[in-house]
């Protein structure tokens, strides 16, 4: 299963509704920005092949999730096997910043990763193209507060981006890819293959469905 030539890295993008998750992914994968994205339902999926560490060819499988809380119970289907989790907020929306910790917690609960303590998270503050007057006042202080107190003081990389004007998006995803690759190698070293797990779960389901008829 894990002996494929290509290295597949699974990346999950989380964050409140409307912070620009879809736009970030579209900007990174397709180098475009549009005002015509509909609200994401469930999760969207895109892939991109990139080179990490100068020579390693990897495929990023990016799941762009829905922001509304109601969809959180879906996480199990999308988070499992993730190699990196991107926590997004909107630099003009303080609530989205304050929610980062709950997104992280939700992810750890549902993804069931082996190393919750050092699982790679990265923080992206999007919409830095917005007018300064609209931005969260004393953002840096508040961000530090969130990372120190709510996110456990772990030094997650932070990027401020504009999906609209393509600022910092590429470099953020380079770091994402590196972090995901490390996590993948760690998983491999531990002989952990999440995919096997996952197929078994389905097969059990199938059998229960079919065993009901006795005639």
């Amino acid at each position: 299963m894990s002996s494929r030539k290509k290295t597949l890295l699974k990346v999950i993008i989380l964050g409140d509704s409307g912070v620009g998750k879809t736009s970030l992914m579209q900007q990174f994968v397709n180098n475009k920005f549009s005002h015509q994205y509909k609200a994401t339902i469930g999760a969207d999926f895109l892939t991109k092949e990139i080179t990490v560490d100068n020579n390693k060819q990897v495929t990023l499988q990016i799941w762009d999730t829905a922001g509304q809380e109601r969809f959180q119970s879906l996480g199990v289907a999308f988070y499992r096997g993730a190699d990196c989790c991107v926590l997004c907020y909107d630099v003009t929306n303080e609530k989205s910043l304050n929610n980062l910790a709950s997104w992280k917690d939700e992810f750890l609960i549902q993804s069931n990763v082996l190393n919750p303590q050092d699982f790679p998270f990265i923080i992206i503050g999007n919409k830095i193209d917005a007018d300064d007057s609209k931005k969260i006042p004393s953002l840096q202080k508040k961000l530090n507060n969130v990372t120190n107190n709510q996110l456990g003081g772990l030094s997650y990389p932070v990027f401020e981006t504009s999906a609209k004007e393509s600022i910092n998006v590429e470099s953020a995803f380079e770091v994402i890819a590196k972090m995901a690759l490390q996590q993948e190698e760690l998983n491999e070293a531990n002989g952990n293959d999440v995919n096997d797990d996952y197929n078994d779960a389905i097969n059990i389901h199938l059998e229960t469905d079919n065993s009901g008829c006795a005639c």
């Binding site: 339902i41 469930g42 999926f45 879906l74 289907a77 995919n195 996952y198 197929n199």
Partner: peptide, 18 residues
């Protein structure tokens, strides 16, 4: 789908939701 690890929720959730 099973052999590829496709889960129905991954693609059909939206079909139902919308």
């Amino acid at each position: 789908f099973d052999s590829e690890g496709i889960e129905f929720l991954q693609f059909s959730f939206r079909w139902m939701n919308c």
